[in-house]
Structures are given as C-alpha cells and as structure tokens.
Design a protein around this nucleic acid. Structure first.
Lengths: 199, 199
DNA sequence: GCTGAAACAGACCGGTCTGTCTGCTTTCGA
DNA sequence: TCGAAAGCAGACAGACCGGTCTGTTTCAGC
C-alpha cells in the first residue's frame, strides 16, 4: 500500500513542487498552466482532476508554504531558551530565506499583490499573517514587553520591510539589520513596562 | 496656443490618469489595454503613437507617481522646522496616503512584484527607492543620528512594512504606529552617537 | 473654404491563456 | 490473468491579450 500511496500522491506532489518553483520565482499570474505541467511531468487532465482549477492550485501552493514556514519558525523558536532569544530568532529564519539563492521576497506578499480582492488566496495570506503576528505577540509577552501586541505590530513591519528591501534593493543583510532593530525596540518596550506607559 | 497645447497633451494626460487609476487599483498585469483606452476615451492608435508599448505606458505611469510623491514628501518636510519633525513628517505623508479611500499599498512595491527581472519599470522603482533612502539619510543626519545611513535603512523597513500592513491586514493606523516607532529608533540612534558606537 | 495633421472607432492578426475532451498506455489489486 | 482506475499526450474550444492597420472625423492655420 505504500507504493500505491506514493504513486497516487506523486502527481499531486510533483505539481505542488513545480508550482512552488515557478509561481514563487516568476509570479502566479505570469506562469501558465502549461509550464507547470511540463515541469511536473504531468498531464493537464491530471492537474484538473486533482486541483480543479488554477486558483485552487495556487491556493494549495501557498498553503504548503504556510505549513512549511510555520514549522520552520516554530522549530527555530523552540531551539532557543531565553524569551529574548526566542523572539529575535524569528528574524534568523528570515535571514536564512534571504541568503538562499533565488530569494524573491515574501511569497504571500507577492501573491497578494497579484491577486484581486475576491481571490481565494487571500484567505491563506491572512491565515499566515495572523498566525505570525499572534506568535510574535506571545513571544513578546514572554520577553517582558509592556504592550506585546504593539511590539508584535512593530516587528511585523520590520519583518515585511526587510523582505522588501532584500528583494527590491538587493539588501542582503536586511534581516540581520532588522533583528538588531528588533532588539532595540524590545528594549524600549521593556523600559516602557518598567516605567509605566507614557501619556 | 494654450488650447492647442491642452488638446495635444490631453490625450496623453487622460491615458496617464486612466492608467493611474486602473493599474494602481487592479495591477498592471491584470488590466488590459482596452480598458485603459476605454476609460481614457482615447483611440488605441493614439496610445501606441504616444507611448509605443504597454510597458512604456506602465513606466510612464510609475514615473508620474514618482514625481508626484517626491514633490509631496519634499513639501511636507519643508513645512516643518526642527530636524526631528522634518524626519518624522515623512510618515505623515504615508498616513495621508493610507487614509485615502482605495489605498492599495505602495504602487512601486506592487508593480515590482508583478514585473519580471528584465522589466524597464524596475529602473523607476529603483530611482524612487534610492531617492527616498537618500532623503531619509540626510534628514537623519540633520536630526543627529549616529549612523544616518543605518537609521535610513531602518526607517525604510518601517515605511514599507507599514504600507504592507495597511494593504493586507487593513491596519489603517500603521503609518501612525510606524511614525512612533521611528521616533523610538531616532532616540536610540542619537543616544548611540552620544555614547559612541557600541562595538 | 481648403489642407493636413492628429485623434477617433473599430476590425483584424497572431499568440497565449484556462479549461475540456478524447484516445492510448500503464499499473495494480482481486 | 484480467479489468478497473489512473496517468499520459495532445488536440481542441472559447476567451482575451498586445499590437497593427484602415478608414473617418475633427479642427487649426492659411
């Protein structure tokens, strides 16, 4: 039964792998179905019997990236002990992504820039961003930030901004700079807690 | 001669206005030529005799936004006296943009997400971002930052990140939050100057 | 009033897109 | 061994794309 499972899922997996490469590198709108099935070595009919539509393939592609990223970040966070290091380590994952050859920015930001307002992919984008923001807020709380939600928003801006700078400006150490900046903001957030909120 | 000038430039201006609305709201790749000329009330041949290609129309659209934004930011900066307020006022322009109905993120970030690597629009995007970064660095220097270039990079990340959060998360006060965060980073950068760079 | 430049409307072309459908081949469980 | 299921290749339909071209209308300057 293992071979059966392998065979049955291989078409789907190969399609997702091909979509992951092509959609991420060139954009979901630019890449046509024909190029995806060609790279996957799969018939067009198989794609449509498996996913039903291109939109659903795109959604699945983003969903698989969401799952992978969630696991990667969770694993990195879990590998550190102090609350401070756990919070800042999220930026280490970004550093890793950026340093990989072929980095082309945040897949979710890119996809949402191409999608129209009614696209089903926005649900996945929202799920990813909500998860990350919540995670950052929890880590910020554990690290002693005065207003964890506010710090999480600030770190999200740094996180997204670093990805943009790396992609567009070729600022390859953006994530390292963002991490250092995050440390500064964390210090300020802790100081706020000690002295009480200003105003 | 005034009427002549008006007539001659009106076709071009109407095309740019239509492109500005449609390309910005729905993406340069999604919107076809036919919809642009329909909204502009211009014949297709006129578009091609004026701009030569869709790519060049897109480039001109971004260029006009670049010019307008440069003027808007310069004007806002000039309206303040203290170096600190001049630096932070850049985020007030972002606040203004976000609060306008139909805000759809940074046009340059969106366009670059849709473009392939050889697209002529990347030149405009790069020109805009280089200008903004340089401007921020000069303002940071005047405000007494220890490392103006570094602070400018940090503020760029906040600036871009706030636009992303506003567009995707509907975080409408992102620019206000980014401005406050920028003030924190400015304070830290000034403190660094006083005490000398930390290692 | 006439001329010529410019903008108009819209047909048209080649190409590409998503999605469907028809055979042919392979595979695998009973 | 056999038959159902799944995958393969590729033709096909219908829509839409960017871009070209033809013919008509408008209007400023002489």
């Amino acid at each position: 039964m293992a071979p059966t499972t392998t065979d049955r899922s291989s078409a789907r997996d190969r399609l997702l792998a091909a979509a992951n490469e092509l959609f991420y590198e060139e954009g979901v709108h630019t890449v046509g179905i024909d190029r995806v099935i060609e790279r996957a070595g799969v018939a067009k009919a198989t794609l449509y019997s498996t996913f039903g539509s291109k939109d659903e393939l795109i959604r699945s592609y983003l969903d698989s990236r969401y799952t992978a990223r969630k696991e990667r970040i969770s694993k990195e966070v879990a590998s550190h002990d102090t609350p401070r290091e756990r919070l800042l380590s999220v930026f280490d994952v970004l550093s890793e992504s950026i340093s990989k050859p072929g980095y082309h920015g945040c897949a979710f930001i890119n996809a949402s820039a191409e999608a129209d307002l009614s696209s089903p992919i926005l649900g996945v984008v929202d799920a990813y961003r909500t998860w990350l923001r919540t995670e950052l807020a929890e880590l910020a709380d554990a690290a002693g930030a005065g207003d964890p939600g506010q710090l999480a928003r600030q770190l999200m801006m740094l996180f997204d901004g670093a990805g943009i700078a790396a992609r567009i400006d070729g600022y390859l150490t953006a994530a390292t700079a963002a991490r250092a900046t995050a440390a500064t903001l964390l210090d300020a957030a802790i100081a706020t807690k000690r002295s009480g909120p200003a105003t």
